[in-house]
Amino acid sequence: MTTDHQRHPCEFQLLRYVPDPVRNEFVHVGVLLREQGEAQTDVTAMELRFTRDWRRVRCLDPDADTTLLEGMETELRNRLRSDKDGKMMRILNESLSLNIQMTPPKAYLAESLPAGVEDLMRMYVDPPKRERMARLSGRAAIQSAMRSEFEHAGVWDLLRKRIPASDYTRPGDPLRLDAGYRPNGVIRMFHAVSLEPGLDLAKVLAYSAGGLRAGVERVEKASLELTAIIEPAAKLGATDEDPDRLAMYRFGVETMEENQIRVLTTADMSRVAETARRELHV
């Protein structure tokens, strides 16, 4: 059994999402844990973690841009890792938005930084077990699977997220592609397209594909490989036992493929992430 003598003195701060500072309602969304003493100037002696389950944030603020919050985690982690002067608080103050606040530091004894972050996330950030029983579905479930595999491959922080289609089409285009990267002369973009609620998402991406491809060639001087990540057919009950649902599923896939969109399922994500790992030389 680990004793306090075997634990490391640390301090932690909680990150809160505060949509309305006047009402002072908040949800804990992350933890920053770092070793005390001289190790505070060592950028490796720090762990930052945001939640992966944004349902409580959406309950507090239905208009919350959770994808932007996820991007904030990546930006903040990258800035802390490149902190050569140990000026962590300055970086935090510059990086956090008005809607994200940080609590004062508190002492904490940790067996290790990763283990400590896990414990603190369970205590303060992750929803209770009864709330987690409601499983993610639709696009949220696909996005979660994509992120998990990219993180497992160690490339998530290297990807560009929420890529505005308007960068390549024209102003006003509301579409944002979930993730992408550029290995060489090709840009790979990935977008979660759930066929669970119907075919609208598939049609939107199919409609946008031609303009995106032409825009990428014009702006980036590169070709575009656009990949839609969907649910496996069986997960949606799209089988021979339900021919109508199967026909709809096939129509969605074929509509995207006819517009030169590569269609893969969440079951293919480990292979996709491994390819990204090789191409990004991780």
Rank of each mutant, 00 (worst) to 15 (best):
T2F: 01
T2Y: 04
T3N: 05
C10I: 03
E11W: 09
L14K: 07
L14N: 00
R16A: 15
Y17E: 05
V18P: 10
P19D: 10
D20H: 08
R23I: 12
V31E: 02
V31Q: 03
L32Q: 00
L33P: 02
R34D: 06
E35K: 08
T41S: 14
T44Q: 13
E47F: 00
P62I: 03
T66P: 02
E73R: 15
R79W: 02
L80A: 09
K84H: 02
G86T: 01
G86Q: 02
M88Y: 06
M89Q: 13
E94W: 08
L96M: 13
I100T: 08
T103N: 05
P105Q: 08
K106Q: 15
L109F: 12
L113R: 06
L113D: 03
G116P: 11
E118A: 13
L120R: 04
R122A: 14
M123K: 15
P127R: 14
R135E: 14
L136W: 08
S148G: 10
F150N: 03
P164C: 01
P164W: 05
A165D: 01
A165S: 10
T169Y: 04
T169D: 05
P171K: 14
P183T: 03
G185H: 07
F190L: 13
A192Q: 10
V193N: 07
S194L: 02
A206T: 08
Y207A: 14
A209L: 00
R213N: 07
L224P: 02
L226E: 05
I230K: 07
L236A: 09
A238I: 08
E241G: 15
A247D: 15
A247V: 09
M248S: 13
Y249M: 02
G252N: 15
N259M: 15
R262A: 12
T266S: 14
M269K: 05
M269D: 02
S270R: 15
V272N: 03
A273R: 05
T275A: 13
